[in-house]
Design a protein around this nucleic acid. Structure first.
Length: 316
RNA sequence: CGCGGGAUAGAGCAGCCCGGUAGCUCGUCAGGCUCAUAACCUGGAGGUCAUUGGUUCAAAUCCAAUUCCCGCAA
């Protein structure tokens, strides 16, 4: 089939590569977000999808607003469009450009976790499993009829980044299978059960502020889910931000004082913090302007007194 | 030219403003102590202070340029 690939995020890269490699399909064009100033120095940066497309010699389109770009897309005469982590809402007119409509690859088991951050949401919800869903897009946000799903069990060692990569690696198989079914006219369309739907909005850094009144178990999960993005952090007694990269729950923790209190802080004991329920050991940190470090190394050069309070602004 | 911080022993940091013997915590090595320990005590090794140039009797420290690293913001 003639396929139009629409996507920006890295999560679509394996699927994109699979489409390029598939002999039964022909990628007729790529639509991705315009290059944006990014990184230190605000240099214009092209998405990985764009870079890969250019390598493969495929036409790249970067409309500011895809809804005003319908005619150019029609010119490509795609049979179907594949949309993964594009970053713009597709209007009805855009959705109707391809003869067979638009397929979306979504990184959750719909109708759970519709929206922008399904991977982190599945972890935070402590779901037993998550996966990828291939669906026909309609005008709603991740509400279209489902073609198929592939599942993945969540593990205690999963971080948001690791899960992201595993789901990205899972996507090509699911996508190709769905395309084959559609090409053969054997695809089924299962409407989503809207009564079970949940939504997640875009994540911001502020979502990563650790609220010490929550339990150590919840906080550990948050740290994992938000690693590497948007990351989690707390504030030191002086008010400086301290990023928290990894943490673990201290088993058999005794009853502790006020949430956010430093229970131990030395290169030998590590950095232990009282939470609303249980004790959390912060194992890897990063201070402003410094590199990420094991907490014990951090403590070798920074004094942090037992009894000090972290995250003062919020947990007061 | 978006804003800002940093580079000093194997690791993490102080010292720099106010030039003059290289310092702290940890690790490491040796010895000691203890029923025992992420325990404690004693002693040792380990550094062209990012690079290059300048100022000076003298530069980790002051000046200039370069390289690399990171935080914020997007």
């Amino acid at each position: 089939m003639r396929i139009l690939f629409i996507g920006t995020g890295d999560i679509g890269l394996p699927a994109f590569n699979a489409l390029l490699a598939a002999t039964q399909h022909h990628v007729v064009g790529v639509v991705t977000q315009p290059d944006r100033p990014a990184g230190r120095g605000n240099k214009l940066t092209a998405s990985a999808i764009k870079q890969r497309a250019l390598e493969a010699g495929i036409e790249v389109h970067q409309p500011l607003k895809i809804r005003n770009y319908v005619e150019a897309l029609q010119a490509l005469q795609p049979d179907i469009a594949v949309v993964i982590a594009y970053g713009q809402i597709l209007s009805k007119a855009v959705l109707e450009v391809p003869r067979l409509g638009c397929l979306n690859v979504h990184a959750s088991l719909l109708p759970l976790h519709r929206g922008a951050a399904p991977i982190q949401a599945a972890m935070l919800a402590n779901n037993a499993e998550t996966g990828v869903t291939i669906m026909h897009m309609d005008e709603g946000l991740d509400t279209g009829d489902v073609v198929l799903m592939d599942r993945l069990l969540l593990r205690p060692d999963h971080t948001g980044g690791l899960l992201h990569d595993e789901l990205a690696a899972l996507a090509p198989t699911s996508l190709l299978e769905a395309l084959d079914l559609i090409a053969a006219g054997k695809a089924t369309r299962t409407p989503q059960d809207n009564t079970n739907a949940t939504h997640v909005g875009k994540l911001t850094r502020e979502h990563g502020r650790l609220d010490w009144t929550r339990s150590a178990v919840e906080l550990e999960r948050l740290v994992r889910a938000y690693n590497p993005w948007p990351g989690t952090f707390t504030t030191l007694p002086e008010g400086a931000v301290l990023k928290v990269h990894t943490a673990r729950v201290v088993p058999d923790a005794e009853v502790c004082p006020v949430a956010g209190t430093v229970v131990a802080a030395s290169p030998k004991q590590g950095l232990l913090v009282a939470t609303g329920h249980g004790i959390l050991e912060i194992t890897e940190v990063q201070a402003e302007g410094r590199k990420r470090l094991p907490a014990r190394d951090f403590l070798a050069g920074h004094s942090l007194e037992v009894g000090a309070r972290l995250g003062g602004e919020k947990t007061a």
